[in-house]
Each structure stands twice: as C-alpha cells, then as structure tokens.
Amino acid sequence: MSVFAKTAYFWRSAASGLRHAPFIHFVAVTTIAIAIFSAGLAQATGRMVEALIGSLGGEVQVTVYLSPELDEEGAAVLRERMVALSGGRANLVPPRAALERLATELGDLGEALAQLPENPLPPSLELEVPQERRTPGALKALAQQLRAMPGVTGVDYGEEAVERLSAISKALRYGGWVAFAVVLLATVVIVSATLQLAIYARRGEIEIQKLVGATDRFVKAPFLIEGFLQGLLGAGVALAGLLAFERLAGPGLASLFSFLVGPGGMVPLLEPRIALELLAAGCGLGLGGSFIAVGRFLRV
C-alpha cells in the first residue's frame, strides 16, 4: 500500500470531479469569489475608516482650565506635571491671551469684550497628547487624573465628539463583522449544497468504491480536495478582481475622498499579507463547505 499512490489518486479524482461537473463547480467557485471579493473590499473600507478616524483623532486637544488664583510659577509647575503625566506637550495660555483669541474668533462682536469690567477667562493649559493616548478610554482616564490635580478647575477635550466618532468606528467594525458572518454562512451553505450535488452525481462510483473496500476517509478525501480547490480558485478569481478594481477605480476613488483622507491617504486595496489572508479564507470556505457536505450527505 502506498500513501503516495493514494494521495495521487485523491488529486486525480478531485480534478476529474471538477471536470465532470463544471457547472456545479462554477457556481461554487463564483460564490466563493464574490464572498472573498466583498470581504476584501470591506477590509479595505474598514482600514480606510480606521485611518480616517486616526487623522480626525489628531484634532483632539485637551484644554485644562486653571484656578484664576494660581500664579505663574504655580501654573508652570502644573504644566510640568501634566507633560510628565500625558507624555505630550503643553502650552500655557494666560487669561489675556485667551481673551484676545476669543475676540479674534468673534470678529466684529469681539469689540464688546472690551467693555467687560474684568477678564472673565481663567488661565489654561492646552495639552497635545501623543497618538497612542487619543482613544476615548485613555482620554477619559487622563481627564480624570488632570481634574484631581490641585489648581485645576475644569478639563475639556471634546468628549462627546470623540465618543461619537469612536461609536461610529465601532458600529462600522461590528456591522462589517456581522455582514461578513452572513456572507460567510451563505457561502458555506451554497458551497456545501453544490458539493452535495456533485456527490449525488457520483453516487454510483461511491457505491462501487464501498463494495471494493474503500474506507469512509478514502471516499471523502477527493471531495474535500474538490472543496479546497474550489476555494483556491474562488479566492484567486476574487484577488484578480480586487487588483482589477484597484487599477480601474482606485484613482477615481482617491480623488473623490482626498478631501477626507488627504492626498495619498488612500490605503492600498491589496497588500501581500491581506492577499494571503484572503486566499486562506477562500480555501477555508471551500474546505468548510465540503466538510459539511461530506458529513451530511456522505453517510457511507
């Protein structure tokens, strides 16, 4: 008995199965290709949204309001502590500078500020936090620590905007996963159904195999290989489709979204690692579908 001879037989038999029921396999390969193509697009969109959120996160600024009683030396000490705590940079804005800035922002209305008997604005520190601390959770924790410092009267970092952005990102991510799971399930069901048809078409051959002493594993192996090959072909077609899509639609999309992500900010649709992941996902889909088909239908 030769393992090599058996393996060669399995591959020959799988290839023959693909040749003898081309339409059935075409349906399965097309389904896998559509699923992998959609997954590839969804993946790229997800990465694009992440990049967008990252760039918007750069706008986040933490403003720390200080007590008006705090003198310059006290403010400088606080500034040092905040820089050490946040790991970023801090800029002290004295009340007068804050009032001037407000007057500039208000334009003509700003003249009214000159009528005020005294400057109502407190001194403040504008804190620029590093990229890794710009998540909603990290910002919230930092704000709590800052509020607890003596001499601090308030902290503002656009909490609502950050949390909304984060919620949108989360919703997109979970929505993407749910959509992917639905497509995955539908694909496995279709692939499994097509393979059941292929198995049915070859029931005579299976009967004879059983009569001459084939084990269940021997009967099932070519069908599992067929599923794997379907997955490989489907993923290959999807990758070719994604490459074509990037070539044809990429420049147009880049100019369309440049106002959001900036020039050159578009993420590439296919990177080698992602291409490999999609290829593996295709093979997994084919193998999974065939596994279910042989398990349910090939009770031999």
Partner: peptide, 20 residues
C-alpha cells in the same frame, strides 16, 4: 463506471488499496 475504460474500471479496486 461508464466513463472509465475497462482497464480503469478493474484498476478501481486497486486504487482503494493504494496500489501504485
């Protein structure tokens, strides 16, 4: 098996055993 030759039909029983 109608789509296989006489030789392949007979060899079918040996494929199962993994005979080269």
């Amino acid at each position: 098996l109608p789509h296989r030759t006489v030789e392949d039909n007979v060899a079918f029983a040996l494929d199962v055993l993994g005979v080269p």
